[in-house]
Computed example of a mutant assay.
Amino acid sequence: MPQDNQDISIEVVRLAKRPQFLFVRSGRAERRKSLVVQARQRTGEAPGTHIGEGFTATKKVGNSVVRNRAKRRLREAARLLLPRFGKPGTDYVFIARDATADIGWTRLLDDMESALISLAAD
């Protein structure tokens, strides 16, 4: 049985190429303690076709083990929240911060949710 808006299926696709990340970088950004979320509306496409998601962590976050853990946490949080709070026709890039790998799970979810809501309210 579907819950509230989860019956609407929006496809979420992964951003993989550097030009896609650079496109999103010139859009809007919301910064939180545990992450940064960048978003930009796609152009030249029918609106509402899908949501794009990309993940990155710089070497300032830590060694490869810490960076990979941070990106895994961001991917899981985005899997849970992006279909509900993401705007169709928009690409999002989630950037890990120093606290991403170790911060509490509910705090990470709260930070991501508040950033997505702020980005959707334009």
Rank of each mutant, 00 (worst) to 15 (best):
I8W: 02
A70Q: 07
V13M: 12
T106F: 09
R28M: 05
A46F: 14
S114G: 06
R107L: 12
V61L: 10
A78E: 06
T58E: 10
L116Y: 05
R84I: 08
S64F: 05
D98W: 05
R42D: 09
V24Y: 08
A70F: 04
K17I: 08
S114R: 10
L109R: 03
L81G: 02
R32W: 01
R31T: 13
A39I: 02
G104S: 12
R31K: 14
L74W: 04
R69K: 12
A101D: 12
A120P: 03
P2D: 06
S118G: 04
R32M: 07
G44H: 09
I51S: 03
V24W: 07
F21T: 10
D7Q: 15
L80R: 06
G52A: 11
G104V: 00
R72A: 03
E30N: 05
D4W: 00
K33N: 02
K87T: 15
R72K: 04
I8C: 11
A39M: 09
I8A: 12
P2W: 01
R72S: 02
G104P: 06
F94L: 13
P19R: 06
D7I: 14
F94H: 00
S114M: 04
I95T: 11
T100P: 08
Y92F: 11
G52E: 13
G27V: 04
V13H: 11
R32E: 10
Q41K: 15
A39H: 02
L80G: 03
S34Y: 05
A115S: 04
I8S: 13
A57H: 10
L109D: 06
M1Y: 08
R84F: 03
E113Q: 11
V37C: 04
L22F: 03
V13Y: 05
Q20I: 05
G44D: 09
A57K: 12
G52S: 10
G44P: 08
D111Q: 07
A57N: 12
K17A: 13
V12R: 07
A115Y: 02
D7H: 15
D4K: 14
L22H: 11
R79K: 05
G62T: 11
D102E: 15
T58N: 09
A29L: 00
A46L: 14
V66R: 12
T43E: 15
E76T: 02
R84K: 03
L82P: 01
L15I: 09
F94R: 05
M112D: 07
L74F: 01
E113K: 03
M112C: 12
E113M: 05
K60F: 04
R42Y: 07
N68M: 03
P2F: 00
A29Y: 01
E76W: 04
A99E: 15
R67D: 12
N5M: 14
V66W: 06
V37R: 07
